[in-house]
Structures are given as C-alpha cells and as structure tokens.
Simulated scan of single mutants.
Amino acid sequence: MHRDTVASFPFIATGMEKGCRILAADIGGTRSRFACFDYAGGELGMGDVVRIPTAEATGFDDLLDRVRVAAPGAWARLTRQTDTGNDAPDTPDASVTAFAAFAVAGPVEEGARCLPPNIGWHIDLATTRGLPCAASLLNDFEAQGWACLLPGAQQCLQLLPGKPDATAPVAVVGAGTGLGKCLLLPGTPHRVLPSEGGHATFAFEGRAEAGYAAFAADRLGVGRLIGDDVLSGPGLSLLYAYHHGETLPPHEVAARLTGSDVVVEWFARFYGRTCRDWALHTLARGGVRIAGGVAASNPMLVQHGAFAEAFFDCPTHTHLLRTIPVSLVTNADAGLWGAAIFALLHAGARRTPR
C-alpha cells in the first residue's frame, strides 16, 4: 500500500479525523479507476487500483458491480464488514467511518448528479443501487486540483521554470478524452473551482490553422470547434488525419509520432496556447499543472519547443508568463488521490445518504 501524509490538513471532516476508509474513483470518458484508501494517524494509504474501460459498463450501477466483483475484499471493508478470508460470515466493524468520492468527467450538481458529455450514461446517486457507504460526486478536474495539495501524489516533470507565488492560484489543465480545467485557490482552507472551459470555443490563429479548423469542423459536423475537439485524444487523431491523410485511434497515432512530426509541433502549440490563456484568465502566479493522460503518456507533446513558444506568445504579458512555472503531472493516479483528499475535507458537507 502506498502511503502519504496528510497530517498538515487541519480541516479533516467531522467523523473522519480519527480514521476512515475511502472509496475513491476517477471516472473518465475512456477508462475508470477505483481504489480504496485508509486514513489513520495523519497518513493516507492507497490500496490496489482497479481499472475498467468506461465504455464496457452499461451504466453507473454496472460500473460499480464490476468494481465489486474485481475487489470483493475492499468492498466488504467499505460496508463496515471485516473480511474473514474464509467461508465464515463477515463481521461488522462499526468503529470505522467509510465514504465514497466519485470524480467524474462532467459538471456535477449538488454533489449527487452528473451528465458526463463523453460518457453514454448519467449518474444520480439518489437512484444508484448498492452504494457501499455514503457518497458524493465531484468533477474529475476538481480532484486533480485537490491532488496538488499532496506532494507525494504529484509526481511532476518541470516543463518551464518560474517563480511561483504560494499565495496565488494554481491553474490545472489537461487533455484526455476531453479537455479539463480547474483552479486551486490558496487559503485556510483551500478551495478548488471546477470548470467546463474545455467546452468553450477554441481560438485558432492564422491561415494555416484556419484550414485545419475547417477540415475538423467538417469531419465532426459542427459549426465551431471547442477545446474538447482540439486538445484531447480524439483531437490528436483528427490532427493526424489532417496532416497525414489517415484516420487512426489516439493510441496508434501516439505510437507513430516522433519529435519531428508536424502533428507534434501543432499539438504542442495548441497545448501551450491553452495553458497560456488559462494562466492569464486566472492570473495563476502559483503555477500551471498539466494533467490528463494524453501528455502524461506522450511527454513530447508538451516538451516540443512549440509549446513554450506559444505559452510565452503574448504582446503585453510575456514577462508575467515567464514567472509562472509549468509542470506535467506524470502520476496517472493523481485523480484518485485528489478524490480521497476531497473526501477527507468535505465528507460531512457534501454527501448523499445510503
């Protein structure tokens, strides 16, 4: 079990401070991750991670059923049962508080409902059957924001140096099945503001990019392109089709790319521009963190020189941008840690009864 300390957090939710068990989930458009955490003595420990292709589940209930089958022992512990490890009945363990925090890629209403734009089903905790304990939903990039508070959960690769201001916001942005964003606000306690900025219109520049925009809009059958269309796994496939005339799934595109490929240059430029604009929109002097599976699996997409060139391309605030450090989160399970931190801090305020 991987452990990290959270003893520095003075705002553990009531009922959780003496120890608890947490089911954390990071439910994305492509895959879903689940893990059980134990919190005791100021330390948070993560157990084995269960990974399930999201599209294989017919709904949220089915997804939970698959987790229950894949990890029956962990599920029993969440239901306050002590797994005896044999055929004898499990025994109650009422001394341990349990809570589930499900981070999902979409806007969340009242901590209980979500209609994810890139998943074929909705989530409503009020009608979900078989929840192992009290639970809450949060946006998947809100979880990435909370993960920024736990150094051990954030394995980062520095992309651009800077002089971070500890009293300023940290902007988080990342491409996966879609484009996610959030903002971590400093304070006592910290706050994380989720965003659906990935669904805002993407800003193309110049005649060459206008040609690509027309191609992509025609392929997708839309009148305008949003960030999700451009800076995402599907966006990478679309860009490859434009430059090379072949349509491939994102993982096959990634396997073919080299640092000299024009697709890498263009995608890096789009990524740098998006990070720059989010940093300026939020005045993120605390830094920019890049999360999401696309860059974590293919670092060249943010290490290419076109990324830095686009990030600093601002006629009025280049000096400001050079003070903002940019780093790449390489821990694929950061969202799980963030969901667990959310549970520790907010379980008493945002929960759906069983």
Rank of each mutant, 00 (worst) to 15 (best):
G245K: 13
S260P: 00
F215W: 08
R80C: 06
G227A: 07
W337I: 08
I119K: 10
P325Y: 12
G305M: 05
Q154D: 11
R51D: 03
H346Q: 15
F60R: 10
A168I: 14
T14C: 09
G15C: 13
G180V: 13
V230H: 00
P234A: 12
G120Y: 12
I341F: 08
F37V: 02
V49W: 02
A71R: 08
G335N: 03
L159W: 07
Y271C: 07
A295M: 10
C36Y: 00
S136E: 02
P53R: 08
G197I: 03
L63D: 08
L345N: 12
A334N: 07
G206H: 10
G293W: 02
E205M: 13
G19P: 03
A279T: 12
E309Y: 04
H199T: 04
L78N: 04
T352P: 01
A24I: 02
Y212F: 15
T247Y: 04
R68D: 04
A306V: 08
V264C: 06
A40N: 09
D140L: 06
C133H: 03
I52K: 00
Q81A: 09
C114F: 04
P132W: 02
V170L: 15
E142S: 11
I324Q: 09
L138D: 01
G272Q: 01
Y39S: 05
D87I: 15
H2F: 06
V69S: 03
A214W: 04
M300Y: 00
S195P: 05
V108S: 02
A306M: 07
M46G: 00
R51F: 03
Y212N: 10
D87W: 14
A94I: 12
F11D: 15
I27H: 03
G292H: 06
G286R: 14
F99H: 13
C148K: 14
I52C: 00
A103K: 05
L283R: 15
V172D: 05
R276L: 00
A343W: 02
R285E: 14
W278T: 11
T5Q: 06
P72E: 08
C156T: 14
A147R: 10
A255P: 08
R129V: 09
D228C: 06
S297G: 07
P10L: 02
E209T: 10
R31K: 15
Y242F: 15
R3L: 10
A76I: 06
G221A: 13
H281N: 05
L225N: 02
T247F: 08
A284V: 08
R66M: 12
V173D: 05
T128E: 07
H317D: 09
Y240P: 04
G259W: 01
C148E: 15
G348Q: 11
L328S: 08
H251I: 12
R68T: 08
Q158I: 12
L220V: 10
